[in-house]
Amino acid sequence: MIGELKTVVLDTPDLKGLAGFYAELAGLVEHYADDEWILLKTADGTRIGFQRADDHVPPRWPDPAYPQQMHLDLRVPDMAAAVERAVELGATRLPGGGDTFTVLADPAGHPFCLCQADVDSVALADVAIDCEQAGPLARFYSELLGFPVTWEGEGGAMISKEGKLAVIFQEIAEHRAPRWPDPAYPQQFHLDVEVADVEEAEPKVLALGATRLPGEGDNWRVYADPAGHPFCLVW
């Protein structure tokens, strides 16, 4: 383990609108807000962030030219009621889905899935990351986050740890990777990974196959994983 998965962050031109959508849909509570960033938390402390991106180009799933890059899966106790509520809040039904899950787009265009489960209320289940090869990317994040690979099979893989948000990797043929900060190839999502000492952590993530990207601040630096998805080391 190099760092801890701190926050899953979604890009949006409308911070308050998108944060409000997920707060209402999943019972998330606002923890922090300013003009560039809103942070929500679940009851168990899972953090979902919203980053202002005025030039955001939304996904057009399943169009491979406008990929989703990542998506959230939410467990729900009543699929029909949850879908109805999501649409009332501004979601749009998308093609796909099955007996146990429904695919929708949030108001910023990010796809997400509602998954039927034995739960009392809507709950975040995982974040899923698109890639061409799931196994190698799962092992990269396993080393980065200290989550074991708990499933690997045809078309995907998963890393998970008790009490933490699981991370799923799904294979997409000819995945069109982000080229951050180029808005024509948007990241859509990114992960913030908290480290104790960035100078100690950086050589380790680079050795795993990450790439340093432009951009840093007082307590963050930007990298890309081996599939091209940006992530930040924060401290």
Rank of each mutant, 00 (worst) to 15 (best):
C113R: 00
A125P: 04
L104S: 07
P107R: 04
H56L: 11
P64E: 06
R75S: 13
V87C: 01
C115K: 00
T92D: 07
D118W: 09
A125T: 11
P62L: 13
A65T: 15
A128H: 00
A82D: 08
A80L: 12
L124A: 11
P67G: 03
M79S: 12
L114G: 07
P77C: 05
D63I: 10
V76R: 00
Q68V: 09
P111K: 05
D55F: 08
A123W: 02
E84R: 11
A123K: 08
T100E: 14
T102R: 14
P59C: 12
D118I: 13
V103P: 07
D99G: 14
L74N: 01
H110Y: 00
A108S: 09
L89T: 02
A128L: 02
P95F: 05
V83E: 15
C115I: 13
G90N: 01
Q116Y: 05
A91N: 06
P77T: 03
M70D: 04
H110N: 04
W61S: 11
D118L: 14
Q68R: 07
T92Q: 14
L94I: 12
P62Q: 09
D118V: 11
A125I: 07
D99Y: 13
L72H: 01
V103N: 06
E88F: 05
P62C: 13
P64K: 02
D126P: 00
G90V: 04
A86I: 01
A108Y: 00
E84Q: 13
A105D: 05
A86L: 04
L114N: 06
S121L: 14
R60Y: 10
Q68Y: 05
A128F: 00
A80T: 12
D126I: 01
T92P: 03
E88G: 12
P58I: 08
A65M: 14
V83C: 10
Q116M: 14
Q116T: 12
R85G: 09
P111N: 10
F101T: 04
G98F: 03
M70I: 08
G109Q: 02
H56S: 09
V103C: 13
S121W: 09
G90M: 01
